[in-house]
Nucleic acid binder design. Structure first.
Lengths: 205, 205
DNA sequence: AAATATATTGACCAGTTGGTCAAGTTTTAA
DNA sequence: TTAAAACTTGACCAACTGGTCAATATATTT
């Protein structure tokens, strides 16, 4: 393994283990030693690549925020709301299924006051949010969907989809086993239908 | 202040401060000293009433779980689903508004694997859940509402209402200020309308 | 009033934790 | 080949934390 490859590979391993740990017990509950154990490196080596636990945490958050990108980013006034919203909800559910730890780290950070992603919330996300509100409002103005407050619709989508990642421990117990395969798809399609119905729409496809 | 009153009053103060702290930084992140500071008692006094931090945490969880009781508990086959579900969603939203810390402590506990409320989830809640599924299914069988999977409906309600407590830091920033008063009521009525529409129902009142 | 139970509190301690460091090894560049 | 840069790692430490305890004070009961 070449030099720069070593760095890349080790950083990746560390980030992966760190994400797992932070998602399970939060920042304060995570031990640098347990991250090291999890990825099979000595603790001092972990702190060689990320100079402090806080640094590592920020790196994990950065990596997670790039996952939030979506088809909805490029939605325009002329697009079909049913199509765009359906796909956005499905994407979000897929993310909850494939990267639940990412969703949980994000949730923990927000619950704890979001101090470490303040800049992200106030800049990138706020901008994204405002532009999406405008698109939804234009769909309403064109009579393509019922008049609802677009803000509440976005919160609604985030809440109901992220729940499947963040609360999977509860869901798994009430369901007597993790939701998976077809049943998870059913949950997805239920959400698509329900949320779209709230906008006076029917799912695409 | 009489003897037993001292105990009651101090326990209450401690529980209140503890809830606040656990909600903000989780179990691992909370310092017994900071709970003591918050309620103006010496640390040794806090540990006199609750013999360990874990004990105190369990007391906080116990207190929170009693809040989960609701009108929906007594819903029957003969009731009107629109009425019952509307009121349940409104209750849940009210709780998110009035006791956000309770919701956050619960969320943190679930995200961390729910090991401390395992018994509650598997007994009380599982029983409640099963009986509510039956009631909803009976409404469907009677043609009172559209055929949806009752499980997903309950998850949907929990997710979308608790979100306003758990993610209020994010909401406040995107909204440029906390949702409150009329705007919070608007959010509530949006959710009622939207979720009911997903069941082919219209809000009561 | 005396005896007993309950409550208060500063001082203390053992275990843990994030982070440092210096000595060594491996990889890269000249 | 050799010098420099990058990487590895055990040993170490200062700061912090949950929890104990003994001494004292206050309230309750007899």
């Amino acid at each position: 393994m070449s030099g720069s490859e070593i760095r890349t590979a080790n950083c990746e391993k560390i980030l992966q283990s760190a994400t797992k740990m932070f998602a399970k017990v939060g920042f304060a509950g995570t031990r640098v030693q347990s991250i090291a154990d999890d990825c099979g490196l000595p603790k001092a080596n972990v702190l060689y690549y990320f100079k402090s636990k806080k640094d590592l945490y920020h790196a994990v958050l950065d990596q997670i925020l790039t996952l939030w990108n979506s088809v909805f980013d490029k939605a325009e006034i002329d697009d079909d709301p049913a199509e765009v919203l359906s796909e956005y909800i499905r994407e979000k559910m897929q993310l909850s299924l494939e990267r639940p730890e990412a969703s949980r780290v994000f949730a923990l950070e927000i619950i704890s006051g979001a101090q470490n992603i303040d800049a992200y919330l106030e800049n990138e996300l706020a901008e994204w949010f405002a532009s999406r509100l405008a698109v939804i409002q234009s769909w309403i103005d064109q009579g393509k969907m019922q008049p609802i407050n677009p803000k509440f619709l976005l919160f609604h989508i985030w809440a109901s989809t992220q729940h499947y990642a963040d609360f999977s421990a509860q869901i798994a117990r009430l369901n007597r086993g993790e939701l998976k395969g077809e049943e998870y798809e059913d949950a997805t399609e239920y959400l698509v239908r329900s949320i779209l119905a709230g906008c006076g729409l029917k799912p695409s496809e």
